[in-house]
Simulated assay, not measured.
Amino acid sequence: MIDHSEDPNPDRPEPVKPGEEPFTVTGSTSPDAVAEKLLQGNYVLIGDKFSSGLKFLSELKKQVFGGADKKDFLAYREKRSQYHLASNRLLVPIRQNKIDLEKAPGIGWLKKLYPDIDDFLLPFPQVQGLNSSWQWYQKGIKYPVLENKLYPYYGTYFPTRFDHLYLFDYWLKKYAGSKSTALDIGTGCGVLAFKLLDRGFETVYATDINQNAITSVRDDAKRVGVEDRLKAWQSDLFQRIRQKTDLIVFNPPWLPGQKETGGLDTAIYYKPILFERFFDEARHHINDDGRIVFLFSNVARITEIEQEHPVESELSKNSRYIKVKLIKRKADRPSSKTKRRDNREGEYVELWELKLV
């Protein structure tokens, strides 16, 4: 079902090569001065303790966000972008697959992802991300809709809110169609793909544009002994799909991107043509009596950054699909595991079931 051409190597945070020698700072350096240099576009290298980096980022965050109103979604996103650019100029030395700072955490990803480099610099926030990811990878994540834990590989999106998972499980319990094959587009950590197997699908194909997600799903499939039933491949939507299937599941990003996105942001922010491409391509990969399940949220509407709904727009403008069912679930408050705290009162998640005309 999949074009078996060679997959690319997993992504990793790219080492930084400043054009000139970065300013070296220590815990005794004024946090105000460090934040100012970062905001002015200078690279700064931490020279003593890992905790110094935490102190400098804390001060930078205060200067950037100040009293910013998190309910002003667009303005707050701009602040996040400014902080992202400045914070990634704060550098950490890496030597022989370890952080070369006092009292730094041990991060297994440094050995797994950088076997070819001995001495380099990484942005402090990227190192924090590697550390956090390594903790999740070691202990795993137990989802309420799955029997087995998942162990997301570095750079793999995994949900920290479960409303859409409950909604999908509710729909899947009542699904009475063929369970020969299913296709999970944009699989992320694979939670929906594994759920499809739990509910009796014989073979599930999972694709994602992010190769790290594919590595993650493949590893977890081997861990629980279902690698013969769950096949994961790197693909931009249906780019490498060659056959038709009984069910297509798509849980896309729920927010429009304001600029070019990369990394994990591609799992959160969508490009303008994403949905047009999906609906145009999906019809060539679904059996005549098959179904498409599209999971979405009204978050873009309630935050007033986008009023057009991708499924409503598709159904009103084209004659390719018919709505079979629409079910909704009120979203719970954000998990303590996510840093997002924007105003989402009144949010609900949706499951659209579609079929070909």
Results as ranks from 00 to 15, higher is better:
1 M>F: 15
5 S>K: 14
6 E>G: 10
9 N>C: 12
12 R>Y: 14
19 G>N: 15
21 E>L: 13
29 T>W: 12
30 S>C: 04
34 V>L: 01
36 E>K: 15
36 E>H: 15
42 N>M: 09
46 I>C: 04
48 D>Y: 05
55 K>A: 05
56 F>R: 02
60 L>K: 01
60 L>H: 00
65 F>W: 08
67 G>D: 12
68 A>F: 03
70 K>I: 14
72 D>H: 09
78 E>V: 12
79 K>W: 04
82 Q>R: 02
86 A>Y: 00
87 S>T: 00
96 Q>V: 12
99 I>P: 02
100 D>R: 04
101 L>F: 04
103 K>Y: 07
103 K>D: 07
103 K>A: 13
104 A>Y: 07
106 G>K: 13
108 G>N: 08
109 W>F: 11
110 L>K: 02
113 L>E: 00
114 Y>W: 10
115 P>L: 09
116 D>N: 13
119 D>M: 05
120 F>Y: 14
122 L>M: 06
123 P>K: 08
128 Q>I: 13
131 N>G: 09
134 W>I: 13
135 Q>N: 08
135 Q>A: 10
136 W>Q: 06
139 K>C: 13
140 G>M: 02
141 I>L: 14
145 V>R: 03
147 E>S: 12
148 N>P: 10
149 K>H: 07
161 R>S: 14
166 Y>D: 13
167 L>S: 04
171 W>V: 04
175 Y>F: 14
177 G>M: 02
180 S>D: 07
186 G>H: 10
189 C>S: 05
196 L>F: 03
199 R>Y: 11
201 F>G: 04
203 T>P: 00
204 V>L: 05
205 Y>K: 02
206 A>G: 00
207 T>N: 00
209 I>T: 07
210 N>Q: 08
210 N>T: 06
211 Q>R: 08
220 D>N: 09
224 V>G: 07
229 R>M: 00
233 W>G: 01
241 I>M: 07
242 R>Y: 04
243 Q>T: 15
244 K>D: 09
253 P>K: 14
258 Q>G: 13
261 T>Q: 07
268 I>D: 02
269 Y>I: 09
277 R>G: 03
279 F>M: 04
282 A>H: 05
287 N>H: 08
290 G>T: 00
293 V>F: 05
296 F>G: 01
303 T>L: 14
304 E>K: 10
305 I>D: 01
311 V>E: 06
312 E>G: 12
313 S>P: 11
320 R>E: 12
322 I>F: 11
323 K>E: 14
325 K>V: 04
326 L>N: 06
327 I>F: 03
331 A>H: 12
331 A>W: 09
331 A>K: 13
332 D>K: 14
334 P>W: 08
340 R>M: 09
341 R>N: 08
347 E>P: 03
351 L>E: 01
353 E>R: 01
